[in-house]
C-alpha cells in the first residue's frame, strides 16, 4: 500500500507467486518501485528475473498475489484496459524482439502508428529516439542487417519513443561484448538521469548493476562518469535500488550500500 499522504508506487508486488507445470518459479515476492527509482533485479540464471518483468507488464498472470502498476491491479484489468495501460510502459526484450519484417524506422514508430500520430511528427520523434541511441544512420535498415548491440539500441529507441512512465529492461546487455554492454548501460543511465523514468533493470552482470549505481550521465561530455565519493551521496546513486532473487525468492532488497555490506553468506558468495 502507498504510504499515507505519499504518492502510490509505480510498481507494487504483494505476495506474488507463479509456477509453471507445477514447478514454483517465483514465491511470495513483495516489493515496490517508487516514481523515478531504478530497481536493479539481480540473481543467478533461471531464478525468475525475466518472469518477474513479464508479470510487471501483464504478459504473464500470477497464480496468487497482487501486482499494481500505476495503482491498477493488472490481473483484474479488462483486456482492453490492460493494453491501454501498456502504452505507458516501455519494454526492452532480452533478444531485442524487433519486428523482422519492418525497418528500423517502422519498428521504432510502431507505437506512434498505433496511436495515429501524424506522419511528420512520427518521423521527427523516431529520428529523435534514434539520435538518443546514436543510431540515426540505420533508420532504413532491417533488423537482420544490424549487429546484436545495434538491435538492442533500436529496442531501447522503440521503448522510449513514446516517453513512457515506466521502462522494463530485460537483460539489455545479455550476450553482448563488454564495450557494447557499456554503451547500452550508458543509454539506460542516460534515460534514468535525463528523463528520470522509473525503471526495472534485469541483469545477471554485477558490473553493469554497480556501474548504474555508482555513475551518472554527464550531458556535458555525453558519457557517464563516476559519482564523487566525497559528494553528499558518497559516490552512490540514491535512486538506484537492488532486488536480489535466488531460487524464486527474494534474497535481498535494499540500497547499494546495504547490498555490499550484507553479512549473508550466499549474497557474499554471489557478489564475489
Amino acid at each position: 500500500m502507498a504510504p499515507p499522504g505519499g504518492p502510490a508506487p509505480v510498481v507494487q508486488f504483494e505476495d506474488v507467486s507463479i509456477a509453471f507445470d507445477g514447478k514454483s518459479i517465483l514465491h511470495d515476492i513483495s516489493f515496490s518501485v517508487e516514481r523515478g527509482q531504478t530497481l536493479v533485479l539481480l540473481g543467478p540464471a533461471g531464478c525468475g528475473k525475466s518472469v518477474l518483468l513479464k508479470l510487471a507488464n501483464g504478459l504473464l498472470k500470477p497464480d496468487s498475489g497482487t501486482i499494481r502498476v500505476f495503482g491498477e491491479d493488472i490481473a483484474r484489468l479488462r483486456r482492453r484496459d490492460l493494453y491501454k495501460l501498456r502504452t505507458r510502459i516501455g519494454m526492452v526484450f532480452q533478444e531485442s524482439a524487433l519486428f523482422d519484417s519492418l525497418t528500423v524506422e517502422e519498428n521504432v514508430a510502431y507505437r506512434l502508428h498505433e496511436e495515429h500520430v501524424p506522419g511528420a511528427e512520427t518521423h521527427a520523434r523516431v529520428v529523435e529516439a534514434l539520435k538518443f541511441v546514436e543510431l540515426e544512420a540505420a533508420i532504413d535498415k532491417f533488423p537482420s542487417e544490424l549487429s546484436g548491440g545495434m538491435r538492442r539500441r533500436v529496442s531501447i529507441a522503440r521503448a522510449i519513443v513514446s516517453n513512457p512512465d515506466l521502462i522494463l529492461y530485460d537483460s539489455p546487455t545479455g550476450g553482448l561484448d563488454p564495450i557494447t554492454s557499456a554503451t547500452i548501460i550508458e543509454l539506460v543511465m542516460k534515460q534514468r538521469d535525463v528523463s528520470h523514468t522509473t525503471s526495472l533493470v534485469v541483469t545477471h552482470r554485477l558490473q553493469d548493476a554497480f556501474t548504474l549505481a555508482t555513475h551518472r550521465f554527464d550531458p556535458a561530455t555525453g558519457g557517464m562518469k563516476p559519482l564523487p565519493s566525497d559528494g553528499p551521496d558518497h559516490g552512490i546513486d540514491q535512486g538506484t535500488k537492488f532486488l536480489l532473487l535466488n531460487e524464486g525468492k527474494i534474497a535481498f532488497q535494499g540500497t547499494t550500500e546495504e547490498l555490499v555490506h550484507s553479512s549473508d553468506p550466499w549474497i557474499k558468495r554471489y557478489l564475489e
Binding site: K54, T87, E95, A97, R111
Partner: peptide, 12 residues
C-alpha cells in the same frame, strides 16, 4: 522470437 510479446508490450 518474442515478437508477439513485444507486440503486446507495445499495447497491441
Amino acid at each position: 522470437t518474442e515478437q508477439i510479446d513485444a507486440m503486446r508490450a507495445l499495447g497491441t
